[in-house]
């Protein structure tokens, strides 16, 4: 059974965003979108999570935090960059303290477009992440 597809637990971190995507991530949990239907739970703790949702781009100060969170997640894990800022820096790309998108700091598996990303596309991004999670699980099992 593909358990990771049935029980993906997420953690959300705001790299440096404008809040727009963040509240849309939270909106996914609420009755209209209700992602718990798919077994998705927002854990809030990297050690329990399978999927890291990052909104916003990475700046000087958030970089070590994002690295720590990523490091503290147990394998298999998937990173989803939510919104255009997380993808490339978006409208803030030219700001003076940008490090770029999330992939400047940690490997990203799924990019979700939008400014702000709509709940539907966020859910779609997570669903895409599930397949990757399942694949990583197989790779992990294959490793000695």
């Amino acid at each position: 059974m593909k358990l990771f597809q049935k029980s993906p637990w997420i953690i959300h971190y705001d790299g440096a965003s404008c809040n727009g995507c963040d509240i849309e991530v939270l909106a996914c949990l609420t009755p209209r979108y209700d992602v718990e239907r798919f077994g998705i739970i927002n854990t809030g703790n990297p050690k329990h999570a399978d999927i890291l949702l990052i909104t916003g781009y990475i700046n000087e100060q958030s970089q070590p935090v994002v690295r720590t969170i990523y490091e503290q997640m147990p394998e298999p894990k998937v990173v989803v960059a939510i919104g255009i800022c997380a993808t490339s820096g978006g409208i803030f790309r030219e700001c003076y303290n940008t490090k770029g998108g999330v992939d400047s700091t940690i490997p990203v598996d799924v990019y979700v477009p939008g400014c702000a990303a709509r709940p539907e596309s966020i859910i779609d991004g997570v669903v895409q992440a599930l397949a990757i999670l399942e694949r990583k699980k197989k790779e992990m099992a294959a490793r000695p």
């Binding site: 971190y13 703790n45 990297p46 050690k47 070590p64 935090v65 994002v66 720590t68 969170i69 490091e71 503290q72 147990p74």
Partner: peptide, 20 residues
């Protein structure tokens, strides 16, 4: 078993008893 750092709200520094 992989030994990792304790959860410090992401404010970890390399030594385990320090945080940013």
């Amino acid at each position: 078993l992989r030994i990792t750092t304790p959860y410090l709200s992401g404010a970890n520094v390399l030594e385990r008893d320090l945080f940013t």
